[in-house]
């Protein structure tokens, strides 16, 4: 397990997603990624790409995606527990 902070995750998202008009710095671990932050279906794909490229993590199916993409904290936890780099 490689320790991963919320700030690390935010930094990676900022670098890789089109986040025009979204203030990612003011979010907390409990902020819902989609309803709260305003991400959309295209951002969901980019999140999957980011996870693969930066952490070598694959999202296998819709069910797993829904669990992982609930909030910043669920995303961070999934990265921490599964990252290979």
């Amino acid at each position: 397990m490689i320790p991963t902070s919320l700030e690390d995750v935010k930094k990676v998202l900022k670098q890789n997603l089109e986040l025009e008009g979204i203030d990612i710095d003011s979010t907390t671990g409990d902020t819902p990624l989609f309803e709260g932050l305003g991400l959309d279906s295209l951002d969901a794909i980019e999140l999957i790409v980011v996870l693969k490229k930066n952490y070598d993590i694959s999202i296998e199916d819709m069910k797993q995606g829904k669990e992982v993409f609930q909030t910043f904290e669920t995303l961070r936890k999934h990265i921490e527990e599964n990252r290979k780099k």
Binding site: S41, I45, I48, M62
Partner: peptide, 14 residues
């Protein structure tokens, strides 16, 4: 549906 079906499409194509 959730994420406009995009995650599901990506998943089945993989």
């Amino acid at each position: 549906g959730p994420y406009g079906g995009t995650v599901e499409m990506l998943s089945v194509l993989q």
